[in-house]
Amino acid sequence: MRIAEGRRPPARILRSRPGGVVPILVILAALLVLLTIRQPDFLAPPSLMSFLGRSAPIILLAAGQYFVIVSGEFDLSVGSLVTAQVVVAARLIDSEPSRTWPVIGLLLAFGAAVGLVNGLVTTRLGVPSFITTLGMFLILVGAVYLWSDGAPKGGLTEEFRRFGRRAFEDVPLVGRVPYALLVLLAVAGLAVLLTRSDFGRNLLAVGGNPRTAELSGVRVWRAKTMAFVVSGLAAAVAAILIGGYSGVSFQAGAGLEFGAITAVVLGGVALGGGRGSVAGAMLGALTLETLFALMNFYGVSGALKSTAQGAIILLAVAVPSVRSSSR
């Protein structure tokens, strides 16, 4: 039911494809300038490095969400998945160092399994993804409260937490490099490789026009299900970093799903699928975090974050749709 868009001639200066990363780089640069005016040493290596480390989880979630959104679906379960992972990790590890690695393996499997269920219910049972993943949200939050009787139990080991809060010290030039940043770079590399693979290309085709993709031999349901699995895995890695950085709580992942979706939209990825890049999505997340840092420095209440997200989503979607019809 989507109507093909008559593409306008590109603007003269920014010869950006729709879904290109140029607009988001411009916004990011502008925000960074504003930020340095207010906080001159923000771009100095120590604060920049720790900012990037702190932003790693949301960037990972945006990368995962990219795969789902570009295939034409939504994953609203990632926030609750992060919460569930953190609480499960604390209870299973129970401050016992030897359990760290097995539990990390288990978390990744758990994330993949949740993604698999989301994907199969959406594709095989024909349930709209926002209902599937909101249902999963209820199930995960309810289950995790039920399992822990209303208060998180156990504890994380130092070995587990170091990914989220430790860093390589005394690196030449930059000082300290958070582990989280290295995890982020590794996953980002993987994500870019994934978008260049057959899977990534198929996914764009599926999001652009499922019917055409199906007729050209792409198994739409398999591609979409894989996208949900990737999102679940990204949430697992993000949960490991968040658990390390801010510890165990039922609020660990609250609202992250909307953060990730906002970031993806901001990065020029078309909701409804078919257009955009994973690099744009991750830059979108970085831009969103920069905006939140800016709001923080200017003394804006943190509670207004969701208003900012809502405004960004509406603007980012409404403005381009003057050019293309997506309804």
Binding site: L271, L304, T307, Q309, G310, I313, V317, S321, S326, R327
Partner: peptide
């Protein structure tokens, strides 16, 4: 503005959430 209904109403919902929070 031809925004997908899901996105439009979630966006408006987030605007209101920020105000309420």
């Amino acid at each position: 503005a031809r925004v997908n209904a899901f996105i439009a109403t979630v966006g408006v919902g987030l605007l209101l959430k920020g105000f309420l929070d």
